[in-house]
Design a protein around this nucleic acid. Structure first.
Length: 851
DNA sequence: TGGATGTACTTATAGACAGCATGTC
DNA sequence: CTATAAGTACATCCA
């Protein structure tokens, strides 16, 4: 952190907060004064006002949040809890480290809650500040709503993600739930610049602070051929700062990215290049690395030798322990030329190594796909956006990226404390394209953000499940249990500000009908109490201004007209019309989504209760459609095992496929080459499949199954990658998804009374089958060595070697090994007597624990 | 005739949250 | 409806 570059100084002493924090900031972080937007917003934040800060990334808006959070919790909100919500696990870890450092200065404890085994050091109960992903907090709240009761302050980072079709609805409901229960809690929303910040701020009841001030000047421009032209500047001085002259990069006929890299290296700076596909990222990294190496051969003095030596170290770190997949080989080869690529085909540990190598200043350049821009803080002196369009499979054509995304990328330029200015260049191929890019991305406004909670334009099943998921959660875990209360809860969401009431009410009725028809909730009858409450609220009119002022239009008519004369014919008539286009995508196609009869509107006084299944689904954090599919599939599996169904048969494939058929699983795109193998299994093993073909993604889902099956057959990672064209990060993510879903499947079976009483023996057999598949997926091995991988320090590889060499199959076997057998193991390649000793010790521990 | 090179055509395409309870090579 | 990289089948060229 640095305060250089600011024309005005706002000394910390001018602000009213804890002296311990001020001294911490000065001594530990070297912060003696605040930037103008920080200075403007901090007093309001310290007052306890809700704020929406729409300020560029890297301008220090999280400092405002950190100071406010720690100061208030240590002083005027003593004893209460703060939550810091971020969208990514990696961001949560980053914020956790920052906040922990700062919070200890005032004696507060910070906890990290992400769905990750290793990282939850501090107990959640115990922490004053909880850093979490939105899904994890939502999940915690579902299990124990009372953890909200002592929330005094909420920070929502990257708040513009509200408009993300996949992740936005969770954030929207999460905030609505917290505000519903803790209406006095302070809210600080940190957002990128968006088109409709006023509207969002109004919804949040927040004061809006907008600024494009940056601590380091940002020159934005274009790169056409070798010509660099600057078009705008945002910086510490503000309007009127002169634009740099346009310039011609040296480099003769070579490619323009090579010329930019040379120029950047010449200035001893680093470069970040954004491209639109993984293959582009790898290709550019490969070519740039080759270019660097050939340049070093010509004139060896360009790059300090210790840097070059570090490239080798970084290259070894990315490939260490790895069986050296094609992707990892490509990465380490590029790194040997000082260039890395960064995309989701890499595992998070690969990405971490790359990020650290860049932050240290060793790597010259990272070529990345767009999401690096919304990840951890990784500034570079220069940013080049090579691709401003991205292929959309859904639209089957390339689409321009949203202004907001491009701005996020460009905003990565300029390292506070190191650079006097940053440069962000958009690559264009012609002057016409250059003009278009300038007007869209440099002069144009960013998009408005909209609610995706009930996305009428949902194109994929998983984008459409939000309302289903969250209504079940609200009924099952929030104590909002009648139709009127549901309406009033939803009326406070951002969605309600954007969708007309009648339309929304229809969608809600659809969802309730689905949840009821599929055994997630029960209608528990109309309530006189609710009727009285509605009457009272209505007659009180606008007296209660918090929740009861805007009743849905139909509530009035429903209470005036007695009985069910709420125009059922008219409404059901409208319902029969295809409101959301042909059901070509996904789950609503089959009986799964639509009921045979028209849906009648729910009475506002109707009350609901979750079923045991519904309640479990909500707590397992499953999409209700996933829950339904799994539950039905388990019913079929029970029928097979009990002998009722002898046409089908049950296998590990059955269970994997069932899990992969849910909307919570992410399918893999088959290549042309994969289709034969996939079709063969789909048809050859049809008798083993428990789930119907419920969408058009059968092949994609089966590919996911086959890849994970290959993993649990102990195939080598590199051969899986080779055979299926699936990179390490993809494999990892599918393994984790199936592991999670199989765990959920096991719980659903375990807790279902119906299954358990129907046939105890089949129930037990099925439970054991799921458990075995679950563990095989988790450890990536065949069944015979499951006893060995349970030993600490033993993975699938060592387990197989032990099994092959000695025929052992359990922790108990290993703990009782003879001296001779131990010697045999120690002589294997990659083993040592010390390792064998350690493993035998931990085997006896697991053995005791297992009994 | 074999091998290098060129050309037209085909194919594929970004990302990543959640449960639970201790540790991969 | 302004994409682009990589792979493939096959033609062409040259020693």
């Amino acid at each position: 952190m640095s305060d250089e570059g600011g024309s005005e100084k706002f000394s910390l002493s001018g602000f009213d907060f804890d002296a311990r924090l001020k001294s911490f900031l000065e001594k530990k972080w070297g912060i003696a004064s605040l930037f103008p937007p920080q200075a403007e917003s901090l007093p309001h934040a310290l007052d306890g006002s809700n704020l929406l800060l729409a300020i560029p990334t890297a301008s220090g808006k999280s400092l405002v949040a950190h100071i406010t959070m720690t100061n208030r919790l240590a002083n005027d909100l003593k004893g209460l809890r703060g939550v810091y919500i971020v969208p990514l696990k990696a961001l949560a870890s980053e914020k956790f480290r920052e906040l922990e450092e700062m919070a200890t200065a005032v004696g507060l404890k910070v906890g990290l809650a992400i769905g990750d085994r290793s990282s939850e050091m501090t107990s959640i109960e115990d922490s004053d500040i909880l850093v979490c992903t939105s899904e994890k907090l939502d999940s915690l709240i579902r299990g124990r709503p009372e953890i909200m009761d002592d929330i005094g302050i909420v920070v929502a980072d990257e708040f513009h993600l509200l408009q993300d079709p996949n992740r936005g609805p969770t954030l929207e409901i999460l905030l609505s739930r917290i505000r519903h229960r803790r209406s006095n809690a302070q809210l600080l929303a940190l957002s990128a610049t968006v088109g409709n910040a006023e509207e969002v701020a109004e919804w949040l009841g927040a004061k809006l602070i907008v600024s494009d001030w940056r601590p380091v000047a940002l020159y934005s421009g274009t790169l056409t051929g070798l010509e660099v032209r600057y078009h705008s500047v945002e910086g510490p001085i503000g309007e009127g700062e002169p634009l740099p002259e346009e310039k011609h990069l040296e480099g003769g006929v070579q490619k323009n990215l090579h010329a930019v890299l040379d120029d950047t290296i010449g200035q001893m700076k680093q470069l970040l290049v954004f491209v639109s596909s993984r293959s582009s990222a790898q290709k550019e990294a490969r070519e740039l690395a080759k270019h660097v190496i050939s340049r070093m051969a010509v004139s060896g003095d360009v790059i300090p030798t210790e840097k070059v030596a570090n490239w080798e170290l970084i290259a070894e770190r990315v490939s260490s322990g790895d069986e050296s997949s094609a992707t990892v080989k490509a990465l380490s080869n590029s790194i040997r030329g000082g260039i890395a690529f960064h995309h989701a085909g890499l595992t998070s540990s690969h990405r971490k190594v790359v990020e650290d190598g860049f932050k240290n200043g060793d790597l010259l350049c990272i070529v990345a796909t767009p999401t690096l821009a919304q990840g951890v803080n990784l500034p570079a002196s220069r940013v080049v956006v090579r691709d401003t369009r991205r292929w959309s499979t859904i639209a089957a054509r390339s689409m321009p990226l949203p202004v907001m995304e491009i701005r996020q990328m460009m905003g990565r330029a300029g390292r506070p404390g190191f650079d006097d200015f940053g440069e962000a260049l958009l690559v264009s191929k012609s002057t016409e394209e250059e003009r278009a890019l300038v007007s869209l991305y440099l002069e144009g406004e960013p998009e408005e953000i909209t609610s995706k909670l009930a996305n009428p334009n949902a194109l994929r099943a998983e984008e459409d499940g939000a309302l289903l998921t969250h209504l079940l959660s609200i009924i099952a875990t929030a104590g909002i249990e009648d139709r009127d209360a549901i309406s009033r809860f939803l009326d406070k969401t951002f969605l309600a500000t954007q969708m007309d009431t009648e339309n929304l009410e229809e969608r809600v009725d659809d969802v309730i009908c689905w949840l009821s028809n599929n055994g997630m909730i029960q209608r528990t009858g109309e309530s006189e109490e609710v009727r009285i409450r509605i009457r009272e609220v209505k007659s009180e009119g606008n007296e209660d201004e918090d929740w009861e002022d805007e009743l849905p239009a139909w509530v009035g008519s429903a209470s005036q007209i007695p009985g069910l004369e709420i125009l059922p014919e008219e409404r059901s008539g409208r319902r029969l019309e295809p409101r959301r286009g042909p059901a070509i995508f996904g789950f609503r196609k089959a009986s799964l989504y639509e009921s045979a009869e028209p849906v009648l509107p729910e009475s506002p006084t109707m009350t609901y209760a979750p079923t045991a299944l519904g309640s479990l689904i909500a707590r397992l954090y499953l999409n209700p459609i996933s829950g339904k599919l799994i539950h039905d599939g388990l019913g079929k599996a029970m029928a097979i095992l009990s002998g009722e169904d002898d046409a089908r048969q049950l296998s590990p494939l059955s269970l994997l496929h069932l899990a992969a058929c849910t909307p919570d699983f992410l399918p893999l795109w088959p290549r042309k080459n994969d289709l034969d193998a996939i079709q063969e299994v789909l048809h050859g093993h049809e008798r083993e499949l428990l789930a119907e073909s419920i969408d058009l993604e059968e092949e994609r889902r089966m590919k996911g199954v086959l890849v994970v099956q290959s993993w649990m057959e102990e195939d080598r990672l590199e051969s899986i990658e080779e055979e299926w064209g699936v990179q390490p990060g993809d494999l990892r993510s599918r393994v984790e998804l199936l592991e999670w879903l199989l765990f959920a499947m096991r719980r659903i079976l375990l807790e279902d009374e119906g299954f358990a009483t129907k046939n105890r023996e089949s129930h037990k057999t099925l439970f054991e089958s799921i458990d075995e598949v679950y563990r095989r997926v988790r450890f990536g091995c065949r069944a015979d060595i499951l006893g060995l991988v349970a030993i600490k320090g033993v993975g699938r590889k060592r387990a197989r070697e032990m099994s092959d060499a000695l025929g052992v199959s359990s922790a108990s076997d290993v703990s009782l090994l003879t001296e001779r057998d131990r010697g045999k193991l120690a002589n294997l390649r990659g083993w040592s007597p010390k390792l064998v000793d350690n493993l035998v010790k931990s085997a006896s521990i697991s053995d005791k624990r297992g009994r």
